[in-house]
Write a protein that binds this DNA or RNA. Sequence first.
DNA 1: CTTGAAGCTATAGTTGCTAGAGACATTAAG
DNA 2: CTTAATGTCTCTAGCAACTATAGCTTCAAG
Lengths: 146, 146
Amino acid sequence: MLTIGKLGEAAGVKVPTIRYYEQIGLLPEAERSAGNQRLYGRKAMERLAFIRHARDLGFTLEAIRDLLSLSDRPDQSCAAADAIARAQLAEVESRLARLTALKAELERMVVQCAGGKIADCRVIEVLGDHSLCATDHRHPETELAQ
Amino acid sequence: MLTIGKLGEAAGVKVPTIRYYEQIGLLPEAERSAGNQRLYGRKAMERLAFIRHARDLGFTLEAIRDLLSLSDRPDQSCAAADAIARAQLAEVESRLARLTALKAELERMVVQCAGGKIADCRVIEVLGDHSLCATDHRHPETELAQ
DNA sequence: CTTGAAGCTATAGTTGCTAGAGACATTAAG
DNA sequence: CTTAATGTCTCTAGCAACTATAGCTTCAAG
């Protein structure tokens, strides 16, 4: 049995994060030692690794909650898991497209900066006047988030 | 003079967001009408457009605060503005690299899903066992944030 | 003059943690 | 066996950048 610190070390997750996952119900309530400290076995370790990996892949905690409950029902169809993964892939692809456009615009901006005074600065100028922009990177809906 | 609703419409920014920007000092306190409603002129409109555009390019509000105060001093060197923009470009490039790796991993995952039962699902399996992964996409430091 | 939209303030919620305070537990050294 | 250092406990508050809600006032159209 591992204490919370060892578990965190093993899984690459910070201690308060583990307690947070327990608090929001992503991890079950841990067993406790005589002195009230959390103790974890292999099952908890695996579950935490699953969460960590999914987080690394950008899944939200909500999506992970769904994936975990799916993985607890091995006899069911995997369509739902597949759908969640595909949705995440679509998310990533759209963010990628957006970031690629941003990169182009930022590059244009910094390349044009001649290094003079603010009054002549292309960076400030472009930010102040959207019409100086090559690409239309305005997205009312799509969040930059995550 | 525009009311807050018209300004928001014109700049593509929601009304509560404008009030929020005022609250955190990104926009100056607006003039008020006899009935205590905010009124905005061309200067406020331009400042808000600047903020909006910079947000669209992924600058944080902190960076925008700096850029705005720079743009208020047109006689100074533009080096600082350039540095902020370059930092943002670097940020975007690193996120781009990371997302590209995620995309590859997610694609691998969904392609391998044969559509059977959860017990055989590659999505769940890969998430549960990091060693099944092609790429090492674990980043202790680099946040996925933004 | 009435009605409905738009404005006001203030507070709380969102996501996914992270940081702090103050108290108890455990472990290693002396 | 004691002490000191570290680890853990709970609880609360904070971060970014908004968004939503409640309950009120003001404005513009008919």
